[in-house]
Design a protein around this nucleic acid. Structure first.
Lengths: 229, 229
DNA sequence: CCAATGAATTTTGTATACAAAATACGGAAG
DNA sequence: CTTCCGTATTTTGTATACAAAATTCATTGG
């Protein structure tokens, strides 16, 4: 007699589809503004329209896909306005995560944060952007884990997806990268001091700066695109 | 020749279903923990399973419905933990809305806030809970509108639904009601002063107090239920 | 009398079918 | 040549069909 069946259930197709499609969208393989051809995707994934459509509904709820009645699905565009609206929300949520985290942080977690910070600096110096991104994500994940609020964690995960796409569109500038590393020093300090209020403020600022840099990059990219036409 | 077709599109069934089901869930007609019988609902709404299932997926993304593979949908339960996780998020989001709103508030909007506040107090004195709730919602709506951030507005709307159900389960205590009215005085003051930081703080506190009162009420209700059994 | 096993029933996941709407295409009129 | 209109094609929304899994229920053995 078992108490927790641990659900050995095989996942339904639409759940797989959600993940695979999300990946395609976030990475830009399905580019913003693109029309989603149900039939084409059905053939590509070898499924029928029913599970595909259910997956599209989930992604629409996440904001990655826009569903227009009688005229199908498109990949959500990323406009400047979207980013300007989304980043402050992300900032508020991450700030909350930081505040909550400080109330729970264990010594082991703080030690881990120090290790990650050291690695982050080293990767910046070695110009290893891929590794840096991973370490960066790990630090944010550490904070979210320490916050110990699954609802917040889930909300951040889905909400972050909407925004992460933008980073695949432009590459970080050297100036912004250095500034981000500097900000991470402050983040670690606040973590070590378990100063929730301060950590929240820094995270908010960190994200606001990220937005500013991103918008600048996007404008440059747009200007270049215009010139080329 | 028109520039904006204004989309005279008839809404699909699943969109209607989402709204009607959400209403049933939020109002408690479909109670937390209840198993969702697809067939029964299909007959009740006279639709086939396809649009119903799509609607359930949307509601699952909102957190009102829980989908378990191979064993169907249930109405999401509201545990103490859920509320303890959700309210701080709601607080952070409303605080952000307050901050943003203060940057935009017009004199007309401030005047409207004063009118609503007067009405709120009158309705409290007349013990008109229904009217009070509507006015209360209008004040929060005014702030969200002034924040002028559709992404935030949408997020708050769906997220609020998860929590609003709890208020249908217990009725506000006289003590909490009076305290809420007092807090609204401070809210109006911050609005009049266009003090975003302060408005944010008060809203956060307002929501934290709401949570505390709600948890207390729920514990009382649970204790009563236990006694009766 | 209870537990366990297995067949009958229900429910779920997915595929397919079909009607209504939207889009693409092509020819005729200006 | 362009614009308009009507037809053909595609796409969307919904219903239905069917197989696999889960649940129910009765029966049997202990």
């Amino acid at each position: 007699m078992e108490h927790e069946p641990i659900a050995i259930t095989r996942r339904p197709l639409h759940d797989d589809l959600v993940e695979r499609l999300r990946d395609l969208i976030v990475r830009g393989t399905l580019p913003p503004g693109a029309k989603v051809q149900e039939q084409a995707l059905c053939e590509q994934f070898d499924v029928s329209r029913t599970p595909l459509r259910e997956a599209l509904r989930s992604l629409a709820a996440e904001g990655l896909v826009v569903l227009t009645p009688r005229r199908g699905a498109t990949i959500a565009r990323i406009t400047r306005q979207d980013l300007e609206e989304a980043f402050p929300i992300l900032g508020a949520l991450e700030a909350l995560a930081g505040e909550l985290a400080c109330a729970n942080l264990t010594d082991a977690q703080i030690a881990e944060a120090r290790r990650l910070q050291t690695r982050l600096v080293a990767q910046h110096e070695k110009n290893d952007l891929t590794g840096y991104s991973a370490t960066n994500a790990a630090i944010h994940q550490l904070i979210i884990t320490a916050a110990d609020n699954p609802t917040l964690s889930h909300l951040l995960k889905t909400f972050d997806g909407r925004v992460r796409r933008a980073r695949y569109m432009v590459n970080i500038s050297g100036v912004r990268w250095a500034a981000a590393v500097a900000e991470h020093v402050l983040i670690l300090e606040a973590i070590e001091a378990r100063d929730g209020k301060r950590l929240g403020e820094i995270l908010k600022l960190h994200i606001a700066n990220k937005l500013a840099a991103l918008l600048e990059q996007m404008e440059e990219a747009e200007a270049l695109a215009k010139e080329a036409s």
